[in-house]
């Protein structure tokens, strides 16, 4: 079974979702990192989102 401490033996590689500055600071210290070009989905209100998740079977 995987353990949290296994992470400490690996090279840190990160995915950043949100503030771009957090990606830039990791690049500065030479950590491999990729920025997700995230934006809110069209289904922004909770009701629509719940309905969509139900339809897609992801809820």
């Amino acid at each position: 079974m995987r353990k949290i401490s296994d992470l400490f033996k690996q090279e840190l590689q990160a995915i950043n979702i949100g503030l771009v500055s957090f990606k830039e600071s990791l690049e500065d210290v030479e950590v491999k990192v990729i920025q997700v070009d995230w934006r809110p989905s069209a289904a922004t209100d909770d009701e629509t989102r719940d309905a969509l998740q139900k339809l897609l079977g992801t809820k």
Binding site: L7, Q10, Q13, A14, N16, I17, G18, L19, K32, I34
Partner: peptide, 10 residues
Amino acid sequence: LPDANMVIIS
């Protein structure tokens, strides 16, 4: 980045 092991969410 298939070896990614950390996701930072803001």
